[in-house]
Design a protein around this nucleic acid. Structure first.
Lengths: 238, 238, 238, 238
DNA sequence: GATGAATGAGTATTCATTCAT
DNA sequence: TATGAATGAATACTCATTCAT
């Protein structure tokens, strides 16, 4: 029941391994339960059961449900950011085909954003920000800001190299993210349903096209007309 | 403690008036409490107290907490949509200064999106979509889709009139919303903090500029360079 | 289980009777359980079971365990005081045989002091005074002070009438209580075991004798020698 | 947090010394915690922390909380009795000024009775006698009986020597204790508040006076009237 | 229709105790 | 011997819901 992959069975090498394993098991199980039930409805009993530990073990490790929640959120935030940053890190410094590269980047980013970890984190943040106002900053410190910055860097380099025409890379970074990702919540029912990949692709392609219309230079192959004029694939925000 | 008698003594205009008043009072109070505490943590006791009615009265009207929640969400969704549609309805059919009109539209829309009703609805949807998967469709049917459509219409007209160059008005509508609104959650801490108006203005201005760079025609006053190159006002998504 | 006499079955006359009955039942049952288990170990579950009500009913009436405890203690304090005051009120204004009257008073008082209600109150006060420092004053205000005063009055009158020779009736009142009652805790194992009446009698008789030796006048029949010189009946304080 | 290592590094005088030290440390700490929180509410965790040992160490030494409690109570009972017996042992065999000597004895005894160790013991006995009915006998065997006896001896000698006129020294011993000490609980809030020394003195003086009125002979300086007729200092029993 | 009162089921948290080290 | 870690059992308190009035 519950339980993520968990490399628990790796054999008991060190003494303290059990401790760490249990702590990790609790954090993973807690995320699953929190994501499913929300903070308030997630019972510590359910978390303990999912983690395969006794309830007091959770209290020994985390002291209180709230603490556990914070640890889980920070952990998940870190994981989600890492995945996104890895994608951004793979963006080539000097792309051959800028449109193609941006499109691939957009696809990969949407995959990150649509990932269960990412969407659950999103939902939990929205759900609990009133109760835990500081949570947002804690998670975002290691989550959103670096992502925008990590995209702004390459964009600035592309501008310097003459491949893009923009003066505020941070803003352009935000706008790129907005153009390719803003429809995701609507398409995926806030991350609870997988979206048809071709719909996402259409959004990304259109987003990249608009981005290049706005910021591209002559060397970007001009997308004549709209690249994918299927109105049917359009979605609506939430 | 518990159960004020409310406006019982207000004299009997119509017999059924008190009934309707109480129902409305409950729905309004319930929204406040749900917005503050979330669905699970919102106690029917608290709602009854806030509405100035006895607990069983709530059950007489709505049967169960879940029903009340659905009614509240539908009601709020309707209110939020109405406000947004009103803003969109005010968009002139034949604008003099397209950039100015789009900017004003963007400002008004961001005001709608940042409204407590709207942001609370957003948070509650995120929070409860797992428990109530159908809620999204119920609310969106009367909320998001019409908004995009209501913007797509004018955009299409502008394209026909030669003021914009776009082939998929629905998609452009989505992108306009994305460009002006995607940073709002980050700027307002998911709607829990008021954002400095000048930051929002900067985002809107930049969004409109990018939109016009991408879709504008010669008759839109060309924004030479970036109109508001203050990187400081840039924010990050969530 | 448990449950004091409880005139519950007196038939449902008034509407609100059930409410009062339940409240009383809870208070009585709570006293039994508190007396048996102490404050901390007395579970609200046990009290509810003993009172024949559901647990939340207790919380509806008293809010918290601590509150219930305070109410119970005040109630018991009142009852214990009332019983003692009644005994003192029966002391004749102009006794024929002072020694006999004092002895009877002493016997009755010791009966009061050894009563389960009184001894349980005593034990609970000792047990919880650290946790509830104000409890003592609350209970004593209506408990001990009036008792001493109620005895001091008659003593003063007897002194005025020439039957006793004392100048500080309050102090004499305290001393009378001390002489007849100080051994009670030792004799009754702090009120947990019934003491042989003859042992109590012996203490009372000896106490009255000492009291009259100290404060009596010629018209008190002199107790020649010690009236009951059985060392065996002597006990020890705690 | 949790488990200091204590004075572990103090160098090994005797091997078993640390053991004994730890045992003693546990007993002392346990008394403090029991006195503060009561038996049921005193957590073994708190005791371990106060003693500077790990929780299992307590179980290694005492097996169970109940055992520890018994050991602590016996220990404290022994200490309290020893202090009282020491005071009684200092009572002169052939006093010059009986009234003065008795008064000093009374003062010293009240000091013993009001000592934190003594009052805490008292409170714990009252609190736990229902749960541990045998505790009283265990503690009293080494506590109360010897005290009465130790006072009865000198009183008997004084009677034999003609300084007192009494036939039952045990009873007189009890009564002396009652007269000087019965108000102590009321004056000290069951030992939780220090009583104004002059109030205690007044009680002792008055108690000794009454005692001598009852049992004194011509060679005790007659206290004409009451020695300290300040009604204000009078207190009330509990 | 509205309500005061009652309740069955459930929640977070704590504690005495034990095991493996 | 001493301890870090783990646990089964229990506890105060809350909540959505119902019933009698």
């Amino acid at each position: 029941m519950g339980g993520v992959d968990g490399d628990a069975g790796s054999g008991g090498e060190a003494y303290s391994r059990g401790r760490i394993d249990k702590r990790q098991a609790i954090v993973r199980a807690a995320f699953d339960v929190f994501a499913r039930d929300g903070y308030a409805q997630a019972s510590v009993d359910a978390i303990a059961a999912a983690a395969g530990v006794a309830k007091p073990t959770i209290y020994n490790h985390f002291g209180a449900k709230e603490n556990l929640f914070r640890v889980v959120m920070a952990d998940v935030g870190r994981r989600a950011t890492a995945a996104t940053l890895e994608v951004l890190g793979a963006f080539p410094a000097e792309p051959d085909d800028l449109r193609a590269e941006l499109t691939q980047l957009g696809r990969r980013l949407t995959t990150c954003f649509a990932d269960p970890v990412s969407t659950s984190l999103r939902r939990l943040l929205h759900a609990e920000i009133v109760r835990f106002p500081d949570l947002l900053d804690e998670v975002r410190a290691g989550a959103a800001t670096p992502v925008i910055d990590a995209l702004a860097g390459p964009l600035a380099r592309l501008a310097t190299a003459g491949h893009l025409q923009l003066s505020d890379p941070i803003r352009a970074s935000n706008q790129f993210i907005a153009l390719i990702g803003d429809e995701l919540p609507a398409l995926t029912a806030l991350g609870t349903r997988p979206a048809p990949p071709e719909q996402i692709d259409a959004v990304v392609t259109a987003g990249v096209d608009t981005f290049l219309r706005a910021f591209g230079t002559a060397d970007n192959s001009p997308a004549l007309g709209d690249p994918d004029p299927h109105a049917a694939t359009t979605s609506h925000p939430t």
